[in-house]
Design a binder for these strands. Structure first.
Lengths: 157, 157
DNA sequence: CATGAAAACAGGTCTTA
DNA sequence: TAAGACCTGTTTTCATG
């Protein structure tokens, strides 16, 4: 049987199937997962426990529609702190709840951040907090040709 | 009572609490949610059903650690198709399972995409698929000053 | 496999439009 | 009076030792 082996994880076809099912609906019961993969419920529970322990499964979360919460505008910000202000910018970003995600990256831009806001005015307030200490470049999201997609899609089995 | 009102949703404090708890652990049982918010289990189940129906809750998913699956390298790609090749580039991106996420954006770059790969060689293969039809700019993720954060953090109540 | 917990379902009450 | 939110039982299903 095909196995995916790393220092942390050692996944077989059943593990992958469980992960795929949980990705589609994290609230699927152990019993139902068991039926789908053809194992006993305790066996599936044990596999899930191990996937968590190994750090393969980091968390179970709910995907919330930003627009339904009034966040009708989303934007990617590229942020390039002026010399000496990197720590300050990091702190400001951490303090802005509108920033849903921020990665430190290589290249001329130091950070890439995702902001969800209710209006252009709100977006301006976010940028105004950062701009004293960094150059920013804002790209408003128009659509998503690729909806958040599974890491598992690239794996066979 | 404070309410968050939109065309789709009309959330009260209990709904927000339920969403926050599900965000922390989407597998929390209805019974436990009920205890936490001080309602009966059927009542909480009904609220959750409505949140799904209203599109506030889009999905329950599991967060998988890319590194645990051998994807040790993640990168942001900015992609700017050469004139006339936008449709082709869109198709290529859709066909690349390494691309976990891709947004169409305003500005000089047309797309922003997130890729998870196992190695630099694999990253090169991804870029090589795109580069005949677009200018790309690749920024490798070094760290994440802001871990994926709740949309609800900005809301009071 | 057995037991305690939880989910699903079915009325029933109270409030509000 | 009708709709909606919530509650209390009961039955079935599930989690887990």
């Amino acid at each position: 049987m095909k196995r995916l082996r790393n220092e942390n994880a050692d996944l077989d076809a059943s593990d992958l199937k469980i992960l795929r099912l949980l990705e589609k609906d994290a609230r699927t019961s152990t019993a139902e997962l068991a039926r789908a993969v053809g194992l006993s419920a305790p066996s599936v529970a044990e596999r899930i426990r191990k996937l968590q322990e190994n750090g393969v499964i980091e968390a179970y979360t709910v995907r919330i529609n930003p627009a339904a919460l009034g966040m009708k505008l989303s934007a990617w910000l590229r942020i390039r702190p002026v010399p000496g202000q990197l720590a300050v910018v990091t702190e400001i970003i951490r303090d802005l709840p509108e920033i849903a995600l921020c990665d430190r990256v290589t290249g001329e831009d130091c950070f890439i951040a995702l902001a969800h806001v209710g209006s252009v005015a709100e977006l301006e307030r976010v940028i105004d907090r950062i701009i004293p200490y960094a150059m920013t470049n804002t790209a408003i999201i128009q659509s998503s040709p690729v909806e958040p997609r599974s890491l598992l899609d690239g794996l066979k089995g």
